[in-house]
Design a protein around this nucleic acid. Sequence first.
RNA 1: GCUAGCGUAGCUCAGUCGGCAGAGCAGCGGUUUCGUAAACCGCAGGUCGUGGGUUCGAACCCCACCGCUAGCUCCA
Length: 633
Amino acid sequence: MSRDRVELIVDDQAFEVEAGTPLKALGITPPPDAVAFTLNGRVYDFQQGIRDSGRVAWLTFREHAGREVFRHSSAHLLAQAVKRLWPEAQLGTGPATEEGFYYDILLPRPLGESELSSVEEEMRRIVQEDLAIERLELSREDAMALFRDRGEGLKLDIIARIPDGTTISAYRQGEFVDLCTGPHLPSTGRIRALKLTGVSGAYWRGDEANPMLTRIYGTSYPSQEELDAHLYRIEEAKRRDHRRLGPALGLFSFREEAPGFTFWHPKGQRLYRTLEEFSRRLQEPRGYQEVATPWIYRVGLWKQSGHWDHYRENMFVIEREDETLGVKPMNCPGHCLLFQSEVRSYRDLPIRYAEYSPLSRFERSGTLHGLMRVRGLHQDDAHLFVREDQIGEEMQGVLDLVDHVYRTFGMPYEVVLSTRPEDYMGALELWERAESALREVLERRGLPYQINPGDGAFYGPKLDFYAVDALGRRWQCATAQLDFQLPVQFDLTYVDRDGQAKRPVMIHRAIMGSLERFIGILVEHYGGDFPLWLAPIQVRVIPVADAQIPYAERVATSLGSAGIRAEVDRKNQKLGYKVREAEVDKIPVVLVVGRRDEEQGTVSVRMRPEGDLGAHPWPDYLEVLRVKAAMPV
RNA sequence: GCUAGCGUAGCUCAGUCGGCAGAGCAGCGGUUUCGUAAACCGCAGGUCGUGGGUUCGAACCCCACCGCUAGCUCCA
């Protein structure tokens, strides 16, 4: 077969055609739900010239790559509608996202969310018109001329950056043309269900120095049912939003007097302390030693650690008596000073310092977000000082902890290795050693991982762990970072077997990460329905009538003595009312006590989500609860 | 910080054209003492985010600031 011929297998039918022939020229009718196809791992639409031999695999909306084609064409649809409404608008870029698509557009005037419905209407009209989507291939000159004529200044900017020798393509549907590599749907009529979901600003090319364009977000599906299901998922996420649930459950609140800082209410503080206790009970048997170090240091320390150069923008800085002081955003420098306080032997290592004290980070006002992004936080933080030969074993220990914790909360997790950033500190050779050490740890464990190039900390590469919650969303929580720089900055040493001073390696690690953020995630993951061991109020005792209040109080007291967090509902209300309130408050266990219970020495158990479990002898049932409520360490 | 939007009772929300500040839930007081998701009656609750301006008169129109929301940028 000559180089300019390709052999294709389509639905078990073989074709041999000239290279560059599009699929639609073969006279084949693709399956009705096919949006594109793959060939040798490359996605093609039906109009792109084929340059590879192989078997054609149809792509539908069900495949990730198919969805991307579908949403990308939806973005073009959006752009076309906007251009019909505002012909002087200039198009930026409009890609598909995980959940939908957006288009960045330079508009003659700001667009409010209320105006989206008219854009949406125009989009539906174009879907009705069922315009064929046509691929054009152009020379650079023709492309420049075409988009100059159409007043698309931003597109000229893009064309200018396309390297020589690349085919420049555009897609036309009706009167609309967009510069685009494709692939795309065959026609606009395929997009049966769509919704525009919001507008926001976005810098051209993502650079703060560039002008801001209007970004219009939307999503689309092949059918209304699928769109409705998507909108329902969004509603569900809103229902679970920790910023709504947290205050409603009496866990925490925010006040404008202290933006980015949390008011922990009694129940929230209990939850918080339970998590902290959970962390201690896991770490102490694993050789961690809890410490507490200062939270304000002279600027010299921050200069020494490198934070002054790399992290100052995120620090609270205080000027007093001609001196500059910085409130700590991290514990690592303090732990280095602690390590320095004594002469260390190789026999002392590894040393594992754990600390839960408050950290302050100046986050820019626009980035604050409930508990997920705050200025005042606490981490289940630790720094391990290890010999180089201990790195593997210690990292394995960290991974064990991560695994235990995320398993406990029923969250699968994904691992990402982040490598050397541009503003890195230290010698290249150390970085390479650190990065390959991390790779080896993961591979020995057989953990699949992704690589995020250039996303490491300024002092070392890191492993980030993304927990996946009940709604399938990913949250970055745990992190484990190798650090060869800070021991150099602080001139940390230990005396080795041969009497020589050696440099330890530091491992920075947090398992839950920021406890604030972790609680935010747990609230949404469980929808406020915490497992028994974690629930702030584990048991509510409800007397059927006032006459049973003393009995209810005796029950609650014995629960308390057994270490179970219990309260009595003394409200003058009917039982049904108090049961409902307990359900709304998401109390995991309700013990109803009426006259029958008092006479027979029982409690009537009601548990979430099962409901009424009938009468059980008391205090025998206390032991059942004690076992169920035990912390899973 | 930037773009757009929002801010009325503890919560959810109504408030017409610029003309006396409203409801439900929660709270409090009473009646009721009740067996598994809302008893009944009553009471109280407001600097309409803050400050300025326009107007005879501003929750409503204008300006500035604060906070929040969706994103952007940032995120050890």
